[in-house]
Design a protein around this nucleic acid. Structure first.
Length: 323
DNA sequence: AGGCAGTGCAACGATCGCAA
DNA sequence: TTGCGATCGTTGCACTGCCT
């Protein structure tokens, strides 16, 4: 994701009334801390409000949570406006955020459970084996593999789900799962059908270009820590032709996915560490860099990164990260 | 108050049905 | 013809309602 593109996505989202945007990349890894701060400042200036960034990379992939605060907006509304996926984002009626309560607000989805995490992780490999596999049969095959797992083997994915739930809770402190009753669903469906014709004339004048800006590039592969403690694609690590059968026979799923125990421990602490890191980032940059710094003031050295550079890019020593 | 059963929903993409 | 929403299939979790 290009720097300017990420900026535009967030700014456009904000202008459309979405105060939290999830970018499908870890901007800290991609750009480094210095440019991350520059991104934060630039976006803050652009929208005229404070911006908080939370960068994470875990087995679910790399993400950057961009929280843009708006004065006088109740917290519960901020929670409800979290954009968590390209689908959710593109489904939002960008032209009328004020009508969110009335017509299709961006709903906060439930946190994923361990099986869903596992299913999503397995999907690329199973589809590589058999591209004709539909999602229904994919679920069945993953289910078969899942049932061969011991409690210990499932534990890894439970940790994954726990980390996701913790982050979900942090981003949506007021979130409460409220399933509808079947009667309510039927009532809503009939009401929708009636409103469909009337709504069609109203929504025809919305801004398709702005909605287009929210179609993020999908995160195609699961990201995991390898022996080198670097972030890489699981699909590239020790994956043989018959991925599914290997998983089914694997004694230790963590070993199969190229993980060591130390990385499990690392993942267990992910959420807490991420929280601490965020606070430290905040403290570090608040003291090290003035909020009014311009792009030019960083100097050439600060831009040692290049297009396509990843988290391996080495920053100048003055920007070294002690985490 | 606690336990249990039933139900909705989270992810995914193809497919189908319905309305305009 | 086009666009939209529901459905499928799976497991686990959260919630509601009922019963003891």
């Amino acid at each position: 994701m290009e720097f300017s593109n990420a900026l535009n996505i967030c700014a456009t989202g904000y202008s459309c009334g979405h105060y939290t945007v999830v970018l499908p990349e870890n901007l800290q890894e991609r750009y480094g801390n210095t440019l991350l701060k520059f991104f934060q400042d630039t976006l803050a200036r652009k929208i005229g409000e404070d911006v908080n960034l939370t960068c994470i990379t875990d087995l679910g992939g790399s993400k950057t949570f961009v929280q843009m605060r708006q004065v006088n907006v109740p917290q519960h509304r901020l929670d409800q406006e979290l954009i968590t996926s390209p689908q959710a984002a593109s489904s939002v009626d960008c032209a009328s955020p004020g009508d969110a309560v009335v017509a299709g607000q961006a709903k906060v989805p439930r946190p994923m459970n361990c099986f869903i995490y596992f299913r999503n992780a397995m999907a690329p490999q199973l589809l590589k084996e058999d591209p004709t596999l539909g999602v229904k049969h994919l679920s069945k095959r993953v289910s078969v593999i899942w049932k061969t797992f011991s409690a210990e083997q499932k534990e890894y994915w439970k940790l994954q789900a726990a980390a996701g739930t913790a982050l979900h809770k942090r981003l949506n402190p007021d979130y409460k799962y409220q399933p509808r009753k079947s009667s309510q669903i039927k009532k809503r469906q009939s009401r929708k059908a009636k409103q469909a014709s009337a709504a069609a004339t109203v929504t025809a004048a919305t801004a398709p270009a702005a909605a287009e800006a929210f179609r993020f590039a999908p995160v195609s592969e699961m990201m995991v820590a390898t022996n080198n403690t670097e972030v890489t694609a699981a699909g590239q690590a020790n994956v043989n032709n018959s991925f599914a059968s290997d998983v089914a026979q694997a004694i230790d799923p963590t070993a199969f996915f190229g993980l060591q125990e130390q990385h499990l421990a690392h993942h267990l602490q992910l959420h807490e560490t991420e929280s601490l890191r965020y606070d430290r980032l905040h403290a570090e940059f608040d003291s090290a860099i003035g909020m009014n710094m311009t792009f030019e003031q960083f100097g050439e050295e600060a831009f040692a990164f290049r297009a396509g550079a990843n988290g391996d890019a080495t920053l100048p020593s003055i920007y070294s990260d002690g985490y």
